[in-house]
């Protein structure tokens, strides 16, 4: 069944990862735009810190009491700046990602580096993907990296390919709000509505998507879309309603909420509109 799900995978930027419990997760892979924003933030932080260090050292240099002391301070200061530059270029990214799986820039844009199996990365992977930065940023401005991202399904640059990692947006859906029928079914509607309606998976999910989106559409567009499937579905289940959108809502409600054990009737459950999440 999961194989089927994978074969029928929609054309989007999600990546399916199967856990040892045979549960398939979707990870939303981060694209080049979001990642470059995070990178720019990181660069600002790094080189901002280096600039700050330079300023501090410049003040210390001016504060030396004798010329030889100032010279000494200048030399030590310059060596600190060189070390800071080295850390900014080669250590900053790898260290953050090895410990937390994300750099401060990635935190701000809620990105995370995980392995292609969806697990946290370790020191080796963090070091590899950031060493390979040297290859990705060639010939300038990450051209190699972006081309490589465009050519892979998981938006992986060379460093990601070598380290078997990907950058994801670990979004957590908020608590589910069930779809409800608003207003509740009127008696005359219930009179003609069949007791049991079964919809197949496609019908169910497409009606559901439509019902969740419909208040974002114009009234005319809503009717137009609903009319496209209301008639064949209505004919099949033997139910007719002048308003196609209402027809779909009634059919969906009956299919989902009735005919199961412990099913509260649709009249007792006119609870909420699908709230904006």
């Amino acid at each position: 069944m999961y194989l089927l799900l994978l074969l029928r995978a929609p054309l989007d930027t999600n990546v399916a990862v199967e856990s040892p419990e045979h549960i398939v997760f979707d990870y939303r892979v981060a694209g080049p735009a979001r990642r470059s924003f995070a990178h720019v933030i990181d660069l600002f932080l790094c080189y901002g810190a280096v600039t700050l260090l330079v300023l501090v050292i410049a003040f210390a240099f001016m504060g030396g009491r004798t010329p030889s002391m100032s010279m000494f301070a200048a030399k030590v200061g310059f060596s600190l700046v060189l070390l800071a530059l080295f850390a900014a270029q080669w250590i900053y990214f790898a260290a953050w990602e090895a410990v937390l799986g994300r750099t401060p820039g990635k935190m701000l844009l809620s990105l995370r580096v995980v392995t292609t199996e969806g697990r946290p990365i370790g020191i080796k992977a963090a070091a590899l993907r950031n060493l390979l930065r040297a290859a990705d940023l060639l010939p300038t401005a990450y051209v190699v990296g972006v081309v490589c991202m465009a050519a892979t399904t998981r938006f992986q640059r060379l460093g990601d390919l070598v380290a078997a990692t990907m950058v994801v947006v670990p979004a957590r859906a908020t608590k589910a709000t069930a779809l409800a029928l608003v207003p509740p079914a009127a008696p005359d509607e219930l009179a003609s509505l069949p007791d049991e309606i079964s919809l197949d998976e496609d019908e169910r999910s497409s009606i559901e998507l439509f019902l969740r989106r419909r208040h974002a559409l114009g009234r005319t567009r809503e009717q137009e879309l609903a009319a496209m499937i209301a008639r064949p579905i209505g004919e099949r289940v033997g139910f007719w309603h002048p308003d196609p959108a209402r027809l779909l809502a009634l059919v969906y409600d009956r299919a989902v909420n009735a005919g199961r054990t412990e099913a509260p009737s649709s009249r007792r459950w006119p609870a909420v509109v699908p709230e904006a999440r």
Binding site: S19, I23, F25, D26, G118, R119, P120, P170, R172, A173
Partner: peptide
């Protein structure tokens, strides 16, 4: 799925 994915991580 989100809950399971986060716990898995």
């Amino acid at each position: 799925r989100g809950l399971a994915a986060a716990a898995h991580t």
